[in-house]
Design a protein around this nucleic acid. Structure first.
Lengths: 348, 348
DNA sequence: TTTAGCACTCGCTTTCCCTGAGTGCTAAGC
DNA sequence: GCTTAGCACTCAGGGAAAGCGAGTGCTAAA
């Protein structure tokens, strides 16, 4: 059933008010907000209807009304005024994204902190890889008899390198053999295949070379798997403590622990879209009393980043959504294919 | 004035008890703990003395006694039983240090988390560099006309690499010139000097080469400065919420914010030693009501790592100190010069 | 010096009452 | 039929009062 215009107006006022005060909203307040067009008694009738329809709730008989999840949902879908970021705000966001970005990990966690301090709610950040990643090229730079630097280039122009201490003395003449071997047999394939190939090659090369090879491949596999890993960072969990609904230390602790520990089960939005999950809409039990706003942004061609904001159900959806998408846009611009700065590669 | 043995015994009982209950300790409880040797009345006399001497405090007239900072200090210095870690605990600690250690940063933050979950207090971790760091060797690996991989080896066998997109087309013949230039003029010096040298060289080389050079040096300077940076990680701040003294959300928030923001002003122990700072002994205002236990460990030859635990003044010093030094030892063993695993270099 | 005894203190908890915001309902008004 | 004024009713929150009990300090005797 479609609500009348006035019911919607009232619902909007209740949500707007409750979002900022965290106090149940009474009929008188609403009447005042409506500039005397109607009396509080009329409002009361309407409120009773809205409760019956499930858009509002009453904590107890003699209290005002608060929005139900269904009410928030309608608010988010229809009533909420799409907030535009001011130029000053956009500027601020862009400034806070001027981070030294040598390492993806660092960018992600830094951006998370920036978002958190800007929306005043806890956030989580993650990078989701779209497809798996493989090595593209190997180089070995000898350092001394017992060590050399392995340089590995991976898909997405990521480069990783490390000094490897070899278990045996390195014969300089073997180096080119090793490099060719690596580049012909161990590029463009998954890490599982790399391990298999290593077995295959075992019999075809002299044992010394094999030892060095397996050490190098071991390093490569480790790096590739690590790059494919999805780690979740959280930031600003302490913001919770400022909210009246989390003044209870136990509640706050519970949610914080969840945020800190949960590595896999936080909401993920559809590609490119922003997603708002209100209270019980969250599948996850620990989030049943909270709302989550998640946005995604592009990182290069094979990855996608996530920023999620966690707050009470009475979160200020309009503002959070606007700021979050501001950040997501900023990050997409920073990482996206078009308009790359000369320093294209954000990793390592 | 030296305390009598009995006074010390009483003080120890008060501290031990208060550490675990967070409740003022009364004369009766103490008498019971002393196995009926003396009556509660005697204890009361002694307690009164201890208050006069400043070792105990009385929250209000009809409450028991709690230790004063001076009391804790005496406890820590003389009374505390040096706790030994059980074999099982040592084992556990070593297990939790089995972290993939490609990046120093990650090791530090991971170890912080492990410590925190093991002592149930928030921790902070930092790596302090003893001296500044310089480049030792450069390599350039051409990728295509417009990009190549820079590999830089730094002091302490750290290696960093990145794909650089060059602003101009790269002439393959110029590469060796560039590498020689880098290796002869830009190794073993500070970043400031590197910038100066760049100026010097400007006139001696063709403009194209200079452009590439300055881009590479720019990257190098950035990496070196970044490696010299001291970043502080905190972990487990939420543990505070479990403690009765931080059930107040405002208090908890305040301390958490301090821990999250403070980059430079957390206590640092003397080399190799463990340091315990009790309440007002902390110079820092935000820590005046808390105690800090800090240990340091060795990381290779030019760095030192820090682990600090922050808790209420009634923190369980004996246990925390034991576990913390267990971790510090574990980390020193992992990083220290002697007994290196084949994979020596912990940084990427 | 230690101990038993006892009056006293004072924070905590519970109880009770009051207040006021807000409701639901009814009956009159437009 | 919708809107409004009026009024009785409900109920959470706050404050005062009372009782409880852990713990003290002091005194006098052992």
């Amino acid at each position: 059933m479609e609500l009348t215009g006035r019911k919607k107006q009232i619902l909007k006022i209740v949500v707007d008010d409750y979002i900022h005060t965290a106090e149940p909203v009474g009929s008188k307040t609403i009447a005042a907000r409506m500039a005397g067009k109607v009396s509080s008694a009329t409002i009361r009738n309407e409120l009773a209807d809205l409760v019956d329809l499930g858009y509002l709730e009453q904590p107890h008989t003699s209290a005002g009304r608060i929005p139900s999840p269904k009410g928030y949902r309608l608010y988010v879908n229809e009533l909420m005024e799409q907030q535009k970021l001011s130029i000053a705000e956009t500027e601020k966001i862009n400034q806070s994204l001027q981070i030294k970005m040598e390492e993806m990990d660092r960018v992600i966690s830094q951006a998370g902190r920036a978002v958190s301090s800007y929306v005043n709610y806890p956030t989580y950040m993650a990078a989701a890889r779209k497809k798996s990643i493989a090595a593209r090229r190997f180089e070995l730079l000898p350092v001394d008899e017992h060590s050399c630097i392995v340089v590995m280039m991976m898909d997405g122009n990521r480069v990783k390198s490390q000094l490897l201490r070899m278990q045996l003395k390195v014969d300089l003449e073997q180096m080119p053999v090793l490099v060719t071997l690596l580049n012909t047999h161990f590029t463009g394939i998954s890490t599982e295949e790399m391990n298999l190939r290593l077995m295959d090659v075992a019999e075809q090369v002299p044992p010394q070379v094999f030892l060095l090879l397996s050490q190098t491949v071991g390093y490569a596999v480790e790096q590739l798997e690590d790059a494919g890993h999805r780690e979740i960072y959280t930031a600003g969990a302490r913001e919770l403590l400022k909210l009246p609904e989390f003044r209870d230390a136990d509640k706050a602790h519970e949610l914080m622990s969840f945020l800190a520990d949960s590595k896999e089960n936080l909401p993920v939005p559809d590609e490119g879209a922003m997603k708002i999950l209100i209270g019980p809409e969250n599948v996850n039990d620990a989030l049943k009393d909270t709302s989550v706003v998640v946005a995604s942004y592009d990182i290069g061609d094979d990855m996608r980043g996530l920023i999620g904001v966690v707050g009470p159900t009475r979160m200020d959806y309009a503002t959070v959504a606007a700021r979050l998408s501001g950040f997501a846009d900023g990050l997409t611009r920073l990482f996206g294919k078009q308009g790359l700065p000369p320093k294209e590669d954000i990793d390592q």
